[in-house]
Amino acid sequence: MDRPTDVSSRGPATPGTRARTPSKRARQLLSLVLLLHLVAIVVSPLSVSPTSGLMEGVWSVFQPYLQFLNLNNGYHFFAPEPTSSTIIEYDAERPDGSVVHGQIPDRSTWPRLLYHRYFMLAEQMENEPEELATAWAESYATHIASVQGASKVRLTRVTHLLATMEAVREGTGLEHPESYEREVLGEFEWAP
C-alpha cells in the first residue's frame, strides 16, 4: 500500500494497548467531514479581496461554519506588504477645563501583548468600513471620556510613514517629525 512519506516517523504502539480503527464506512463518513473542513479553511483565505465571484459564492456556503468557529481568517501576515503604522491621539477635556493628552498605542504599555492590543485598535481604524467610521470614532471617544472623566474628546489619526533606507543612511531617524501625518477624526462633546 502506498503511504504518505512521513509514516515512517510514527512511533510504535504502547505495549499492552491496542488501537481501535473505525470501520471502513465510518472512515468514509469521517473523510467527508474532514474534506468539507479542509475546503472551508482554504476557502477562507481564498475569499479575501481581491477574489473571484466563484470564491465569494463558495465562501458564503461556509460562512456560518467559519464565523462560528472563528476560522474566517485570511492569514495575510505582513501582506501585501508592511506599511506605515497608525497612532490615535486624543485630547480629553474635563469639565474643570484641564486637558489630558494621550495616545494608543503607547510604548510604555506593559506587557507587550497589551501594547499589541492597543496597536491593533489603532491599526483597525485604518480599515474601518466607511459606514461605521463615525460610530467607530465615537466609540473610542466615549471610552476615553468615561475613563478620563471628560466632557469633550478630540481624536486625531496620526499616520507614521516609514523611512527609506536612503533616508536613514543620510541621518534621518525613524521618528523624524516630518514622518508623521495628522488628520483630525472629530470632536465629541457630552452635556455635563
Binding site: E81, T83, S85, L162, L174
Partner: peptide, 9 residues
Amino acid sequence: WLAFANREY
C-alpha cells in the same frame, strides 16, 4: 526593511 523601519512594531 519596511517591517524593521516600523517604529511602532
